[in-house]
């Protein structure tokens, strides 16, 4: 290590202070919203005068909230499956293929990551208008797939590049057909990459709001869109409850990832 933390002296405390402030900056809004979701005040007053679960009760009692959550979950699940499958096939092509323009194609696949989402949303909206996909489930899935796929391709190509092709060749010489060798040897060996791809794809879709606002119709909304729409009508703490639930799913997935990573390593 270039920097030895123990030998920093007074700097140590300054660094600790900066780290603490940054963490607080990132985490406080989440704690704030979670606290509000349990607060009894109708007007989102902080600190809450007293604690209650009634906003969660309201959330689960309202079929429109539940439907939005269910839509989000379904879209995210399908996007995850498609993103990992397409990402896997694309990665094999990008890593193993021998063709001109491979690097360019690879960069192209990653552009949705750096393109402003609004630009993408407008473009997709205009295109879907022509083919009649706006406000449809399919349109949602395609839109989210576009932004999820780069993450998928990134983690799977990484895993595949770290996997020695000779191992697959050895399986083939052992008598496994090329497909069987890929299924039984290569895929398990890059499972950490597939898992990352799945988690990132799910999360990308799960809390995506910009594309979703463009794709949504009054009858088809994801949870983030519903939160956003409700926010504009009235400021009910049910929004805080919905947000907290959104965050809980995200955190749970992150924890699961950490656990699986640890399990894969040992």
């Amino acid at each position: 290590m270039l920097l030895n933390f123990d030998r920093l002296g007074a700097w140590k405390w300054i660094l600790l202070g900066i780290t603490g402030l940054t963490t607080a900056f990132l985490i406080l809004p989440i704690i704030f919203i979670a606290a509000l979701s349990f607060g009894s005040s109708q007007w989102l007053i902080f600190p809450p005068p007293s604690w209650t679960l009634k906003w969660y009760a309201a959330f689960f009692a309202d079929p429109r909230w539940l439907e939005a959550a269910w839509t989000s979950l379904r879209i995210a699940a399908i996007v995850t499956v498609l993103s990992v499958l397409i990402g896997l096939v694309a990665s094999f092509g990008l890593v193993r293929g021998r063709f001109i323009g491979k690097e360019a194609l690879r960069a192209l696949f990653l552009t949705p990551m750096i393109l402003p989402v609004v630009v993408l949303a407008v473009a997709l909206y205009a295109f879907f208008l022509r083919v009649g996909l706006n406000g449809t489930f399919t349109g949602f899935v395609i839109a989210h797939l576009v932004v999820a796929l780069p993450f998928s391709i990134l983690s799977i190509t990484n895993a595949l590049e770290g996997f020695d092709k000779s191992i697959e060749d050895a399986a083939v010489l052992c008598g496994a057909s090329p497909l069987e060798a890929k299924l039984r040897i290569t895929l398990p060996s890059i499972s950490h990459g597939l898992f990352s791809a799945a988690v990132f794809s799910f999360l990308t879709s799960w809390d995506e709001v910009v594309l979703a606002i463009f794709m949504a119709s009054p009858t088809l909304q994801t949870l983030p869109v519903k939160i956003w729409a409700t926010l504009r009508q009235d400021l009910t703490p049910a929004i805080a409850a919905a947000s907290t639930l959104l965050i809980i799913v995200t955190i749970a997935l992150m924890l699961l990832t950490a656990l699986v990573r640890k399990g894969l390593k040992s």
Binding site: S166, A170, A171
Partner: peptide, 11 residues
Amino acid sequence: MVFQRYTLFPH
């Protein structure tokens, strides 16, 4: 075949 690199199936 035995390869130059280690090719045991890691999992």
